[in-house]
Write a protein that binds this DNA or RNA. Structure first.
Lengths: 173, 173
DNA sequence: ACCCGATATTTCAAATATCAAATATCGGAG
DNA sequence: CTCCGATATTTGATATTTGAAATATCGGGT
């Protein structure tokens, strides 16, 4: 049996080094979020000012750029990691603007292929060049080796998160 | 005067080693985005399922948690890196739910302080614990040293981006 | 052929987000 | 004190986003 004094000490120690227990993960996550919000706001602003383009539309076009024949809405929504309904609305507006077109899939009457129109492709190419240059400026403070390290760590982190999700471990309270 | 053949070679070389020129930055940025989207979607889901809470509301509460007396809408919007109008709407809804309260600032009649209600504070504390545990599971694959490295690199990257923004370098086409 | 669970998309309501314009107040220069 | 540029917030229009439900089609088993 432990003495009352010992119990108090345990509790205090625990509360101190605990305070939550996962400080490092939280700080890392918050820092990642604030960095990406900063970069994103800049890209958003430049796209708007220089090309009258929104970031979601640009992202969608970027997905389509390498798919000559286009891809289904489903594949788009998976790659963009957004919901189906979201992509439907985005595509609707972009079709109206002539940036992409929708056509029935040949084999499967449930699905539609979306692809860049020549206009969309042409516009995207101009934007992509500028986008790359903006990123280069924003990441200017990192050298090649640091970027490589960060790539590797992000890959590892992503793997980790994927596994946790697949195993349903995030459910553990 | 260069020969036609030389011109062709130049153009080809340029196009090849160029192709954009900033591949590393782009890949790093995309990887960071996909990782954060993955983590975010998990946190969003757990908040909804376990606490009927949305991520924006949780983020707002997290900002208020350490400010006993609350803070102005302006400070909130800066910290959350979202627009003023966005915060106005969020606070409106959260006041209606009794999670936060709004009161006039004592000195400055333009501004209002927002702070957690006792109910909001109590709820946030439960959620924050779970949130930390979710993050710990998601980041499980990184050891302490790797997290530290990533923290440092993100700090450096953020500095870099800040400087670029401050100097208006992102404007360079 | 018919049923049925799975897949692809759309629809709908509500929330979130941006941007621009409007409103209110502040605080200092003259 | 008054004007005026700066600051704090709200408002309104529109776009984006989610989550859930509805619709349509697929494809295998019977």
């Amino acid at each position: 049996m432990t003495l009352p004094a010992q119990n108090l000490l345990d509790a205090e120690t625990k509360a101190h080094e605990h305070e939550d227990g996962h400080e490092a993960e939280l700080r890392l996550w918050l820092r990642l979020l604030s960095f990406s919000a900063l970069v994103e706001s800049q890209i958003r602003r430049r796209l708007r000012e220089d090309y009258r383009m929104t970031l979601p539309r640009f992202d969608l076009m970027a997905q389509l750029e390498r798919a000559e024949e286009g891809m289904t809405l489903n594949e788009l929504s998976k790659r963009m990691m957004v919901t189906n309904g979201n992509v439907t609305g985005l595509v609707d507006r972009m079709v109206a603007e002539g940036l992409v077109d929708r056509r029935p899939a040949p084999k499967d009457r449930r699905s539609h292929f979306v692809r860049l129109t020549p206009l969309g492709r042409q516009l995207f190419q101009r934007m992509a060049g500028a986008h790359g240059r903006w990123l280069a400026v924003l990441f200017n403070g990192l050298d090649a080796k640091e970027m490589e390290t960060m790539m590797a760590l992000l890959a590892k982190a992503k793997q980790s998160a994927r596994h946790a999700v697949a195993r349903g471990e995030v459910e553990i309270s």
